[in-house]
Design a protein around this nucleic acid. Sequence first.
RNA 1: GCCGGGGUGGCGAAAUUGGAAUACGCGCGAGACUUAGGAUCUCGUGGUCGCGAGACUGUGCGGGUUCGAAUCCCGCCCUCGGCACCA
Length: 865
Amino acid sequence: MDRRYNPKTIEEKWQKIWEDQKLFKVTEDSTKPKYYLLEMFPYPSGKIHMGHVRNYSIGDVLARYKWMKGFNVLHPMAWDAFGMPAENAAIEHGVHPAKWTYENIEYMKNQLKRMGFSYDWDREFATCDVSYYKWEQLFFLKMYEKGLAYKKRSIVNWCEICQTVLANEQVMSDGTCWRGHADDPGVTQRELDQWFFKITQYAEDLLEWCDKLPGWPERVLTMQKNWIGKSVGAEIYFPLENSKEVIKVFTTRQDTVFGATFMSLAPEHPLALSLSRGTPQEEAVKHFIEKMKRQDQLKRTAETAEKEGVFTGAYCLNPMTGARMPIFVANFVLMEYGTGAVMAVPTHDQRDFEFAKKFGLPMIVVVQPNGHNLNPETMSEAYEGEGILINSGPFNGMDSIKAREAIARYLEERGLGGKKVSFRLRDWGISRQRYWGAPIPIIYCERCGTVPVPEKDLPVVLPFNVEITGMGKSPLALVKEFVETKCPNCGGPARRETDTMDTFVESSWYFDRFACPDYHEGPLDKKRVDYWMPVDQYIGGIEHAILHLLYSRFFTRVLKEFGWVSVEEPFTNLLTQGMVCKEVYECPKDGYLFPEEVEGQGERFLCKKCGGKISVGRLEKMSKSKKNVVDPEYLIERYGADTARMFCLFASPPEKDLDWSDQGVEGSFRFINRVWRLFFELEPRLRGIESLPFGSALEGEQRTLRQKTHKTIKKVTEDIERFHFNTAISAIMELVNEIYVSKVKEYNDEISLRVTREAIETVVRLLFPFVPHVAEELWEALGYQGSLIKTQWPDYDPEAVKEEEVLIVIQVNGKLRDRITLPASFGEEEVKAWALKSERIRRLIEGKEIKRVILVPRKLVNIVC
RNA sequence: GCCGGGGUGGCGAAAUUGGAAUACGCGCGAGACUUAGGAUCUCGUGGUCGCGAGACUGUGCGGGUUCGAAUCCCGCCCUCGGCACCA
């Protein structure tokens, strides 16, 4: 046998064995506890990147560990296969998106296999398979039936680069597209007819359950709560002057209603134009609305933007005071939030304050803070805090917090409004003006209007022959055979919807489909879904904190209502792994540079192109545009999959960002080699030797080594359970170091051989989840047959980890002064006595009065004097 | 501005319940082996002072609680991320 570590040979060998024996295939089994482990599935972009390697390495540790712990582990993999890049490839390289996608899948699948991940490949599917998306079309129909899918004309986000609409969740806070284009000009607004999913119907439930997901990271839940954005307040009706109509307003500060002196409408508010009609203000209002329309929404609504507005010429009345309130149109009011109209209380709202100052509008103080006397004349900013109500009729003297409740009730009793809750969350816009997606199963008939495709006519298959232009209109609109159809109602001529569904729809339920990917009588086989769901552990990037994770929670609620799933929440535990980062080289003139384009001289780095100084050291997420990617392919080729896996797991804990380090990779490779060498140095003498039974009484070096072995089992087990893979690996390293320095491995008596065998065998078993190929190879070399996956995870011998002696730290006044080794059996008084007897301690406390002696059993004695 | 992470050696990091700060790895230094090694094995490695035993100091900063604080409390600073003219 080749005694050198040759990753290529052994990795190919074991991957074939795993595949041939279908070791990771699972079926429902009621005799074992189930464990559904899932990592976010990849988009088949061409080849895997380091983020995938990290994500899937983390998952694979857990999968293999749980198998060995006796769980029935579902660990599947699929492809999030619809989406933009396939169409771009079509435009750039003239290749059909389907061909491009399926070829990428083949290639990436092969890469994942070469990483040695333990997937049940029999469950694989791609979301662009008709057999997958047809069920999604069924969901759409059911949602349409229940009013959960609807079409409306609205102002939507438009990405110039993707040439399609984006959902609110898909626009980043800097106004760019979630896909992170290199030179993103920012999203713009368009008014379009679009399909929406009514996620807002579940806003309250989605929010409430955030507090019932203890297995989720706090920061993800916080982000979701922020995104849903619940505000508790009141709705108030302001009657229009000389009219029966009212303007509805949402406010969280109904306690300040007596101070409302004017009204602000969003430019898009339907009343804005109609109120000014026929007044001298009409032209000005029209002009202002036009101007707002042209302006970028992000800029218009930036906090720093100057308050702008125009008087409509109309008035409404304060329902509490009867005061005449001029109605304005203002740039800072958003049509999408609340009612699109805001009662303006300049004294207690900074925006209204600025607006009132600019237009010289009246100001009345209605909340008086403790110990101050606010005067509208002298106020330099609004007072937004709490206080005692004044100028508020029957509510004078009331605490502002209590007044909110009282005024809401008052409004309700008189039909002037009432309690109201508002959410920031908007409905999910799912129409995409793109080809490579699931067609929306809707038909438009001239006579019957919008008609859903009958269930029996599903699937609406995405046609193959399409010209892809990327020009901002669905390419499907150009496919006559697709568009032109008959109305299922009247049989007359009709046209199909040509937009496709957002790809986030596919990823909102793929985890359910894994339970029954071969089921064809319906979308989900309830019995099997009930067996596997919910996902016990979900692992993926933090970038989906809102997007995919919120959509999936929404979809789960919908599918539960339809009776296809039984769970409220799809993912019991969530692990969000950090990004893989590497330093970037940036030249002020030439932009980002590859490392080879940089000349390094100690602290100074120069650009090879222009000779200018380069800034280095900044760590950024690996990305092509930043020119700081490392191709996993290179790692597999040069070091093997085991090294790549181990580096990702060892360099930092899963939730943290991982800083790339070439030397770190070398270190991991070196460790594997170190284990390999040690193993084959010992192996010839250990053949046929058996480990010691539990409870064996040993002494001296033998006991020390065996104790380290069992302590390591304990530590690694606990660390895997709490996802501290980096410390689990370091514990194994310690054991390896201990074997290296232990003399026991050189002795030839039976006990020494057995202790050594147990130690090295333990290293192999504990390494399996992290570096499975190496572990399998060494396991086989130990004379065992069959995969380690079929073996039990080792238990530690409680007898072996017991300490006979303990190191006691002695402190004087909390400072470390000495340490002594004592038999573990010593009682409190004995330990104290020995501590006080120490030579160094005696010197230190000489002549001082001992006030107290604190003892932490088996750890330390602190003498206070 | 609000909310949430995080800040520990030259670097990645560890310390699970308030009990030895810096495990493990990288880097660096010394030694062994060697014709040689950038391979391998062993040892050392927070800072200051000291020949030394040792002393002092040290987990972003300032206070506090405690016999004892990286860990708990109060007040700041920096940094990353989310939300943000949200009524």
